[in-house]
């Protein structure tokens, strides 16, 4: 009897431990999009390719684009050139990102924030995008320079969102891949 209980307890412990680990796993296919239209999203696309992820990049993804995807990776960062290229205003872009995030939340598609632009994609007009995406993410992968003032780590702490900090952009490829393994 005793062994039985201990076996059950062990199984239960393993089960919960496993499921909490599972909570940190994300599924493919992956939709990659930008928030702020910085070209950093192109780098993330390249890193995802190098990790052999089943990923599609849509710079200005809308709610309908979420169909069939199991994870949404958003790369926040403002670029006036990027918005110019897209022919939209910062306000339009904020609206688009907001509705994309709302749709993903409704569909229970988890959001991963990936901030790789360092201080070039912080403060000024970038932080409204950084804040919006961080608040709604289930995981954050950030290149350290972008978190020098603790912007992302404080959101991570307050909202209990797992955060991985890496030194360099190239070093973010592996943790990105591992999210799906």
């Amino acid at each position: 009897m005793k062994t039985r209980i201990s076996t059950i307890v062990t199984i239960l412990i393993l089960f919960f431990a496993g499921s909490s680990l599972l909570a940190q796993k994300f599924e493919q296919p992956v939709l990659i999009s930008s928030a702020g239209q910085s070209a950093d999203v192109k780098l993330v696309k390249m890193l995802a390719q190098r990790q052999d992820l089943n990923a599609t990049t849509v710079l200005m993804a809308k709610s309908e684009d979420l169909t069939g995807f199991k994870t949404l990776v958003i790369v926040p960062g403002f670029s006036s050139k990027g918005l110019g290229a897209a022919g939209i205003s910062q306000q339009d872009e904020l609206e688009r990102v907001r509705s994309l995030i709302n749709a993903a939340n409704d569909l229970k598609i988890p959001i991963v924030l990936m901030h790789i632009g360092g201080n070039a994609r912080r403060q000024g007009q970038s932080d409204s995008f950084n804040q919006l995406v961080a608040d709604n993410s289930k995981f954050m992968l950030v290149v350290k320079q972008g978190d020098e003032d603790g912007f992302f780590s404080s959101i991570a702490r307050a909202k209990n969102i797992p955060l991985t900090l890496v030194e360099k952009i190239a070093e973010s490829a592996e943790p990105l891949g591992n999210l799906f393994k």
Binding site: D40, K42, S79, K81, A85, A120
Partner: peptide, 12 residues
């Protein structure tokens, strides 16, 4: 050396 990528806007 950190450089940020910027796409050339099509309409500029």
């Amino acid at each position: 050396l950190q450089f940020s990528p910027e796409t050339s806007p099509k309409n500029f």
